[in-house]
């Protein structure tokens, strides 16, 4: 009786809340474009100002680059936190990995995965993609290694210290380009004009490709570290 009463109260409260929300969101004005035409402005002058064909990348790493910096700093902090909570001193107990066929096949595929991730990162300003997406693909290599070859293999190849170093280098690249913006253009994280080349080529769009690389390193190494910390934990519990 008591338990049912609690459930019913919760359901009633939720339904009432839902009705209240519905009534309220009915009042929302129809979507009439954004106040000062922010999106129009970007579409009009995004290419000429940033030199980036991919306008989303232009917004992420140029117009609101500071927010992206904050976001990637949150990833950085989260990785440090997870390592702080989950890390253990011992070497992880390795699983033996999958069969010979899978191991061979992966050996052949791996360079192509790496190439694809590098492509996604470096062409972030030309085609869909960018640092965050490419970094995740990069981290996938490390994750597949752990599954297919067993976790100790990945540990020996790329130690956590090396991954942390990669991550830190990525973070410093982003921040360093921001500081360079102050000295060369007068604004923090301002696009570096002297790097701009002909639109559509690989080395165009000022500092955007370089920021992309920094973010790619950071996200890739960060996700690999997170995955790695979690493996250690599960293996310890299984024993």
């Amino acid at each position: 009786m008591h338990k049912n009463f609690k459930n019913i109260t919760a359901v009633v409260v939720f339904i009432l809340m839902g009705i209240a929300f519905y009534e309220n969101f009915q009042l929302m004005p129809a979507y009439k474009g954004l106040g000062e035409g922010v999106s129009d402005y970007i579409i009009r002058s995004g290419l000429s100002e940033t030199g980036s064909l991919n306008l989303i990348t232009a917004v992420l790493y140029d117009y609101r680059a500071f927010d992206s910096l904050g976001e990637s700093t949150v990833i950085f902090g989260a990785v440090s936190g997870i390592v702080l909570i989950l890390s253990r001193k011992m070497l992880p107990v390795s699983s033996r990995g999958l069969s010979f066929i899978v191991k061979r096949t992966l050996g052949i595929i791996t360079p192509f995965i790496a190439l694809f991730s590098i492509y996604v990162i470096t062409h972030g300003h030309l085609t869909p993609g960018g640092g965050f997406q490419g970094g995740v693909i990069f981290a996938a290599i490390s994750i597949i290694f752990s599954i297919v070859y067993g976790s100790a293999f990945d540990y020996r190849r790329y130690s956590p210290q090396m991954k942390t170093a990669f991550e830190t280098v990525g973070a410093l690249t982003f921040l360093g380009l921001g500081i360079a913006g102050i000295f060369m253009e007068g604004y923090f994280l301002h696009n570096l004009g002297f790097l701009t080349a002909e639109t559509g080529t690989l080395i165009s769009a000022g500092s955007i490709p370089y920021i992309n690389m920094g973010v790619g390193l950071k996200v890739g190494a960060g996700l690999a570290i997170i995955f790695y910390s979690m493996i250690q934990k599960t293996f310890k519990e299984e024993i």
């Binding site: 927010d67 700093t73 997870i82 702080l84 909570i85």
Partner: peptide
């Protein structure tokens, strides 16, 4: 939005500090 970002940052960064003793 930047304010939201920083508030989230505070939450995310303090959480591991709270569980520092594990």
């Amino acid at each position: 939005f930047t304010m939201y970002l920083f508030i989230e940052g505070i939450t995310v960064f303090t959480t591991p500090l709270i569980s520092f003793k594990k």
